[in-house]
């Protein structure tokens, strides 16, 4: 039992956040210009060894500021997000196997599938029935949609029960606290994602504490 990845889409069909955990087959880095900045630092092409001196990914200005949620005071300013030890380990261990899809194509396919399935279920049932999840032989995809049109998508082991409650918890907890209430995140901008350090850390903590995560 495990959890593979989390995608968040906004109502303009674009992927605004991505996070993965036990993923053995990774997507290739996204083609430049096809994905918004500040979605996940793992999906952009990294500067090569030679020009380390260059600016650290230009796509990140602003989002490195972490604000205290109650007072609004800047509590941390970072140049580069300190990667958690676990993500470093998985990155080095699984770098060899990449899927044939690049990240931007993958995100579009995920969005296309959930949108088509949603329409299929609505059409078939003839009422306002929601699509909840689907399962294949190797993974299960769960969907939670908010009233504001944000879609939370999680991929997990095929044998897990519904994980909708976790997606709801992410929405009610970290998302509201560190994205909606964060003045530095421009939601609905169509220009940048919502990734910031506090949101990533607390989402990570929340998902790692779920019983099916191992």
């Amino acid at each position: 039992m495990t959890i593979y990845s989390l995608y968040i889409f906004d109502r303009h069909c674009s992927c605004v956040y991505y996070h993965d955990w036990h993923r053995s087959l990774r997507a290739k880095v996204a083609t430049e210009g096809n994905i918004l900045p500040a979605v996940s630092h793992e999906v952009y092409s990294k500067p090569t060894e030679g020009d380390v001196s260059g600016t650290p990914t230009p796509s990140y200005p602003g989002s490195r500021l972490a604000l205290s949620s109650s007072t609004g005071i800047v509590v941390a300013v970072n140049e580069q997000p300190p990667p958690t030890p676990a993500t470093v380990a998985t990155q080095t261990a699984t770098q060899a196997t990449t899927s044939s899809l690049s990240f931007d194509e993958e995100a579009k396919l995920v969005y296309g599938v959930i949108l088509s399935l949603r329409n299929l279920i609505k059409k078939l049932s003839g009422r306002d029935e929601q699509f909840v999840n689907y399962r294949t032989s190797t993974y299960k995809l769960h969907l939670f949609e908010t009233v504001s049109g944000f879609k939370f998508v999680m991929l997990s082991d095929p044998n897990t029960d519904s994980l909708r409650f976790i997606l709801r918890q992410i929405y009610a907890g970290p998302f509201l606290e560190y994205v909606v209430k964060n003045p530095l995140v421009s939601m609905d901008s169509k220009e940048r994602g919502i990734d910031n350090e506090l949101f990533r850390l607390s989402t990570d903590r929340l998902v790692r504490n779920v019983s099916v995560f191992s």
Binding site: Y4, L101, L120, E129, Y134, R135, T136, S137, T138, L155
Partner: peptide, 17 residues
């Protein structure tokens, strides 16, 4: 094609509410 762990079958079960 969306499998996070290698080759996968197509969708087998779709659930609504």
């Amino acid at each position: 094609r969306l499998s996070p762990t290698g080759t996968s079958s197509g969708v087998q079960v779709i659930e609504g509410e």
